[in-house]
Design a protein around this nucleic acid. Sequence first.
DNA 1: GCATATATCTGACTTTAGTCAGATATCTTG
DNA 2: CAAGATATCTGACTAAAGTCAGATATATGC
Lengths: 290, 290
Amino acid sequence: MLDPISRVRRFNRAVTSAVGALDTSFLGRGRPLGAARVLNAIGHGRSDVAEIRDYLGLDSGLMSRLLRSLEDEGLIETTAHEDDARRRVAKLTRAGRREFAAYEALSNTQAKGFLDRHAQADALLAAMDLIASALTRDRIALDAMDPRSDEARYCLGEYYAELGRRFKQGFDVSLSRDPDAVDMRRPRGTFIVAMSDALPLGCVGLKGTDHGYAEIKRLWVAPAARGLGLGRRLMEAAESAARELGIALLRLDTNSALPEAGQLYRRTGWSEIPRFNDDPYPDLFFEKRV
Amino acid sequence: MLDPISRVRRFNRAVTSAVGALDTSFLGRGRPLGAARVLNAIGHGRSDVAEIRDYLGLDSGLMSRLLRSLEDEGLIETTAHEDDARRRVAKLTRAGRREFAAYEALSNTQAKGFLDRHAQADALLAAMDLIASALTRDRIALDAMDPRSDEARYCLGEYYAELGRRFKQGFDVSLSRDPDAVDMRRPRGTFIVAMSDALPLGCVGLKGTDHGYAEIKRLWVAPAARGLGLGRRLMEAAESAARELGIALLRLDTNSALPEAGQLYRRTGWSEIPRFNDDPYPDLFFEKRV
DNA sequence: GCATATATCTGACTTTAGTCAGATATCTTG
DNA sequence: CAAGATATCTGACTAAAGTCAGATATATGC
């Protein structure tokens, strides 16, 4: 009915008024919004004054005065940065932590109230994840991580669950050649996770072998991050990690039930090769020289 | 990985900064945000000063000054309301329409830029619709409309498409007993559409018959509005319309492939009855005395 | 060691937003 | 028609946000 642009603008109107309501609830604590924002930035772990100023987009004069007013309230303390005495570092006092917790409670209550009013919270959360990822796509960081870390294991769990849904015969990881974690750690390989804030949105493993090539394994992009080019970014990161590790030849296997994966490989310089392992799941095999 | 509340708050952070960016782009036109908002409200058809004030939540003094500043710029003209000379009515001048169009272009460019950067715009739009509907649920209006109106036809088209997806054998409306539009118009019946802004989110038809009962037909809720209790609201509206029209007995048919519909009927006082028509699609029949 | 760059702070502003108490004109109700 | 209600406007404020030009202290590069 509505055209796409009108639908985006309907969304904009809806969230603008919701955001305004949260700001108003923050004012209820008797402090101007500017000071509240600085306090919350510090509470969320931003201690460096220059970083806070940059994050909130404040003028240095204004920032200085907001810090002073929070200090006068006894909510923060500032000290010189240990490596550079020009910079200042702010931290919450005990009273500041209490006040920060009160703001957190307001935010959490608002969030919970929104979820509680909705009968199908899963669909709502999935939609929120998708939009938040799209809006912050430029801030998605690709970090090398241990494949045994919580973030990596979360990604792998989601990846296996998705294979189970998409393969007609399901997916049992114990039947697949599960790569040893050590093969996906430096110096034999690596494991890369795409993180948006604290939310893992995708992963890829580079698994070293003793056969003169390394394998790309476990490429996964969260449903909330599809359409952002994250698969391509992860593959590029894996290939450049391979180059750094002195690996010249890469191979991977995949399944034709995952057409978007095959398409990505074909578009980015991979060539199809004959089967090179006896894993029961894959039916497509690729190779690329990097 | 993240808990639901953190996911909502991640979304809040993401949209807060996006909304801020749009506001900043509005400032680029050299006018304070307050005045820009009033101008845009007038451009979007709100002419009554009291209505604008209420919509934007402004103090009457502030509102008056903002109107004066727009008048001084030559962007609007105000006249007395024709029925009530205390009230004022604002409208754009030629220059005002030009300036309004410039703000519209900024909003549209922002919306389009966001969509264009995303490879799967359909999923993104569906997510935005869902969230916008959840945020504005209290402003969803149920309006009686002609079943031949654009809004009604849009709903029916979506409804048929969904039946086609959910019935194993598909759905061909020409095989079903398509109700005559006149039977879903007063005084024989009615057709109700749930509207959120200009987006239709659901519908229900009350179809008069000559057999001593009326039928509920075409109950549909858009995917973007599921979980908001809209199905129940639509049914209540249809039942109360029936009461108004002096109809005492209601019947409906549905299909067990739509379990959420059957559940809704059972929970709201409908009792299952034997088949009362020879439509090939339904396999469940209900009745309710209102 | 000195010139230059950087991070923060202070003082002196301006603009924007918002509040509140009347004033004025008009409408509604009895 | 009078009394009260309502819509807008004006004047006189305050608070918050933001700007900008130095001042001060510290770091960095030659």
